[in-house]
Amino acid sequence: MGIVLDNLSKIEALPGGGIALATSDELINWARTSSVWPLTFGLACCAIEMMAAYASRFDFERMGVFPRPTPRQADVMFVAGTVAKKMADPIIRIYKQMPEPKFVIAMGGCANCGGPFYDSYAVVKGVDKIIPVDVYLPGCPPRPEALMYAVIKLQEKMRKMTVKGGHGATPLQGTGSRKLT
């Protein structure tokens, strides 16, 4: 967590700190929901739909979704496609490289549960076996509108976050998602 969010919850002890925190929650959540920066990262055919969502017919940028090439500057990872076991380690590594608060959208049947490769020797049955997932998006592949709906659902989740008690980040703040194996 950043220096600001780590120390922001200490305001609560001050007189009137609760109100200040509630107000700052509004501002922080507005900023977070308005600028969801995903990682430029695709695994299979779902990535093509993800690209279509950025392009002119659907235009993700209307919602402030702006792809970043490096995980250090990304907020959300679209796991777009089949997660092969060989790719599982790089995905965990990229996830660990993202700064808190970070979110994951499992896009498509393969990322949710293995999809048509449920019976395969080489596919991870759902990306939630290796990293925590915030939004599951079904479809094979989901249309770009569906991906936008997933981002809207993620924004709804972000709006419920609060800095009170240090819970400014992902729901895994307590356990620390960085300590994941």
Partner: peptide, 28 residues
Amino acid sequence: RMGPMYVGWWHGALQTLADGIKLFLKED
């Protein structure tokens, strides 16, 4: 495309401000 549309009061005018606040609060 349209570019930022929903953040801020007019055609995403506050987009950069939202990005800045968010980046300010991200883990370093």
